[in-house]
């Protein structure tokens, strides 16, 4: 089901994210997803996230679809040229996968195959444009497709807490121009920052889902704050995680923080995208606590 249908109904749309394994044994991950993520609108499947080679996003999307979930196919431009991207989009349509999230992708140098050729033939903007072309029944070379063209709900990402917020907004506008119909954001730990970003982004009138990562411990959030682009963790969050070590270890503090971020951001956006990073089992609890 196209996730855009949910936004048009005015729902506060909840999605989560799973990363395929480095291998092809998916049973455990699929049954976990079924158990904890069946009630939400859709589940993103990452595409060689952080440039670490894993089972393909498309393959895992198919496995989730077969298990009755609604996958969002994440597609990056790092590993495929325009022809491979187009043919994977057609394969997605074949499998009935109709949500796609278009990303540029991290550079190969950051991952576990640093010697691989970084492709970047297209980028997030031109990929969105390509999806629109396919929907019109032609490929990027201008050749006609055979039969009924595919239809996708087309998503993109934006980094609201980035220190380059002007450049991010400019890119967001280009993505919309190219066909983006919804946005998921990089993880937000500071609702204030997100809210002031939304003040500027709301002019575009496109649904935005606030990105939330469950903070597991002090080491994790410190690392992200220092090293991950677009992530800023306020000291208050770090102090909260430090306060009660047992509670943090049990995941209770992380769940509370995540739920609070959702509650505070909810009036300013159209949904939430939870990146549980292995803590998928905690998603239902977070949503309950957030009042969703």
């Amino acid at each position: 089901m196209k996730i855009t249908d949910r936004f048009s109904k005015g729902e506060f749309v909840v999605t989560a994210e799973v990363g395929p394994p480095k291998g092809f044994h998916v049973d455990e991950l699929v049954s976990e997803a079924k158990e904890y993520l069946s009630d939400i609108a859709a589940v993103n499947v990452t595409d060689n996230q952080s440039s670490v080679m894993r089972l393909s996003s498309l393959g895992f999307c198919k496995a989730l679809k077969d298990a009755g979930l609604n996958p969002i196919f994440q597609l990056t431009c790092r590993d495929r040229n325009r022809m491979a991207l187009e043919s994977d989009l057609l394969a997605a349509a074949l499998f009935g996968i109709d949500n796609v999230l278009c990303l540029t992708g991290d550079h190969t140098k950051l991952g576990d195959h640093p010697g691989a050729k970084p492709v970047f033939d297209l980028d997030s903007v031109s990929l969105l444009h390509t999806v629109c072309e396919l929907e019109k029944g032609r490929d990027l070379g201008g050749n006609e497709l055979v039969g009924e063209p595919p239809v996708f709900a087309k998503g993109a990402v934006v980094s609201p807490c980035s220190d380059s917020v002007d450049a991010q907004l400019a890119k967001m506008e280009r993505k919309i121009m190219a066909g983006a119909e919804f946005f998921q954001t990089q993880a937000v730990f500071d609702p204030e920052r997100f809210i002031s970003f939304m003040e500027r982004a709301k002019q575009f009138n496109v649904p935005v889902q606030v990105g939330v990562i469950i903070p597991k411990n002090v080491g994790m959030v410190r690392y992200m704050s220092q090293n991950v682009a677009g992530i800023v963790v306020p000291d208050s969050v770090i102090d909260e995680l430090k306060a009660d070590k047992e509670k943090t270890k049990a995941g209770i503090t992380g769940v509370e923080i995540a739920a609070r971020i959702i509650r505070e951001c909810r009036p300013y956006c159209q949904g939430v995208h939870i990146m549980a990073l292995g803590w998928e089992a905690k998603v239902p609890e977070i949503l309950k606590l957030a009042g969703i």
Partner: peptide, 8 residues
Amino acid sequence: NGQCGGAK
């Protein structure tokens, strides 16, 4: 087509 999300 513009900045990626990787600038820090």
